[in-house]
């Protein structure tokens, strides 16, 4: 449930669901997000769910903080609401061409390459949120012994499709972008496709995904 509602500037509501990051809090955020999105309140022009917060942006020409707050406080995001989640398999190639930070991970985690991949692959991860760049999914939770900090100096260009780790999360770079996560592999799948306007994202908040390893040959032939 929402613990506290604050204003974020003069054109957004900051709904705080707590400080922890876990599936149960995040599922509440997603329920509120989906409920408000369906209702189409006049003036609300954007919703940003994250681990434990929901930011509701509105057009200050059409409404204001008091009205939107009042509206949100009276919403019942039913426990029964179907968050309509999918289960997806994501192929990932961890060949040395792609696993740019495997050596760094081996050193930080004090695990062998084989052990790192064994820990990472074939497990279910939950999509907490998407964003930062278009379509990027934030997937959790990595095992305790798989958690590494960001690179001290972020890369200027992380290749499209990179599968990367930081702290308790994995993500996928949906297009080439700067970034500081530890890169473990690369997926040939298009995780974000702007030409599909109704469904540009392959992975959405609430979905469960599993990474399946593919060989370099399978990777090369994947889109043919």
């Amino acid at each position: 449930m929402i613990k506290n509602i604050l204003n974020l500037g003069d054109a957004a509501l900051y709904c705080d669901f707590g400080n922890e990051v876990n599936k149960s809090i995040n599922s509440q955020v997603i329920k509120y997000f989906k409920t408000i999105k369906e209702k189409k309140f006049e003036g609300i022009n954007n919703l940003t769910p994250s681990y434990n917060k929901l930011i509701i942006s509105y057009d200050l020409k059409k409404t204001n903080f008091k009205e939107v707050k009042n509206y949100v406080e009276n919403i019942h995001a039913e426990d029964s609401i179907d968050i309509n989640s999918k289960k997806l398999e994501i192929p990932v190639c961890c060949h040395e061409n792609f696993s740019m930070d495997i050596k760094r991970l081996e050193e930080i985690l004090k695990l062998s390459r084989e052990k790192i991949l064994e820990n990472f692959l074939n497990k279910e991860y939950f999509c907490y949120m998407t964003g930062f760049i278009a379509g990027m999914p934030f997937l959790g939770d990595l095992d305790e012994n798989m958690r590494a900090q960001r690179l001290e100096t972020p890369r200027v260009k992380v290749p499209k499709g990179s599968v990367a780790l930081t702290e308790q999360f994995a993500n996928i770079y949906t297009f080439e972008s700067p970034g500081g996560w530890n890169i473990l592999g690369n997926t040939p799948l298009d995780v974000f496709d702007s030409s599909k306007e109704d469904k540009p994202n392959l992975i959405n908040p609430g979905d469960t995904i599993i990474f399946k390893e593919i060989t370099l040959d399978q990777y090369k032939n994947y889109n043919e």
């Binding site: 974020l8 054109a11 940003t48 930011i55």
Partner: peptide
């Protein structure tokens, strides 16, 4: 913990 941003 990463959360939403708005312009400004």
């Amino acid at each position: 913990k990463s959360e939403g941003l708005i312009k400004g």
